[in-house]
Design a protein around this nucleic acid. Sequence first.
DNA 1: AAAACAATGTACCGTACGGTACGGTTCCCG
DNA 2: CGGGAACCGTACCGTACGGTACATTGTTTT
Lengths: 207, 207
Amino acid sequence: MEPFTPRQNAVLECALQLLVAGGERALTTAGLARAANCSKESLYKWFGDRDGLLAAMITYQASKVRTPGPRESIPTLDDFSRSLVVFAEDLMGVLGGDVSLALNRLAIGQADRDGAQLGALVREHGRLPIETRARALLELGRRHGYLKFSDTHEAYETLYGLIVRDNHVRMLLGESPADLSEDRPRRARLAISQFFRLFGHGAQDIE
Amino acid sequence: MEPFTPRQNAVLECALQLLVAGGERALTTAGLARAANCSKESLYKWFGDRDGLLAAMITYQASKVRTPGPRESIPTLDDFSRSLVVFAEDLMGVLGGDVSLALNRLAIGQADRDGAQLGALVREHGRLPIETRARALLELGRRHGYLKFSDTHEAYETLYGLIVRDNHVRMLLGESPADLSEDRPRRARLAISQFFRLFGHGAQDIE
DNA sequence: AAAACAATGTACCGTACGGTACGGTTCCCG
DNA sequence: CGGGAACCGTACCGTACGGTACATTGTTTT
């Protein structure tokens, strides 16, 4: 199921650009055909209809991110907390990226039609990979005695909440990511520090 | 600045119903005129244009919520933590409500045009009241020695993150609120318990 | 009672966009 | 070389919707 030909990928990339630049209403089939130097007929042959195109854009964008394979070496507590901080920074960076914001806006704007197919796609391809990466990290920490929790999902949700807070929705509503990501590393460290106070084994206090 | 006449309020209420039922594309000027038994001409006279109508819907909806005045009696720790739990439940209830979800979807879907005016409206009328209520609560707790923090905004954001996690965005993406609000009171208590472990004065452990 | 105003509903206009059809060009394969 | 597939560009169609005009009816004011 390698999904698309290189040509189609180029067109999808172009579509993403259009979407980021001008929002959904800037992404018309005619406009995309013009910008990508392809014909509308090809668009419809490849993607079926406009909704198919949108879905393809999401899966294409998802195919670009590579989840870093877990390095299963034995980490020190410092190593481990550092990789949590890296995860937090990565998460903030992804959610604040313009392509991610544009696609999330797109999916949310259509969440009332078609049984929210786009929303399901975003959840499946966008959020699930992040969650699995985080869960692996959390369970690694637990295995080494750095963390203590019973329900991995519960711990993950708490971690997510501490990192993201309501920044994601505010960015989706149009607040400038710059205003929100002031000193991103500091916010990442703070979130992880709080997380350790909730789920750390002893009374570890990093920072 | 009492904004609208009763007749206009009725029309706006009708518009909200349409929006909730069918999403943005179900909210056409002709459709609203038919559903509300008014003329398109009146719509344009009252609200200027379609965007004005959308903005009016947001401010109208915001005008319906009344922030409960702070009862400034001296609360026990139990009272206080209970009102935090109530706040958490209220917050989850509001964010999961269908009108709130529909309006947030609407504003997010248009966040790329007009400098995100609708998004700014939602932030101002929807989120700011919640924040002020929470801040009052938090500072009350600090004044009575139940909480300990230096930056109220920081504490508020943490509280928000612990309560909401990523549930809001997932609901916006179309995930059924029912799936997410399983046992809302339990989740509220859990969030407040975690909050106390981070910001409580001693090592209070409710629950 | 007459005039002024407000509101309804219908009809209309222009446009923008999704989707289709078609002629012309390039490229591959036999 | 010849035939066919894929594709580009353009032109076209139908429709849906935002916005305007107008004729009619009801309501207030003087």
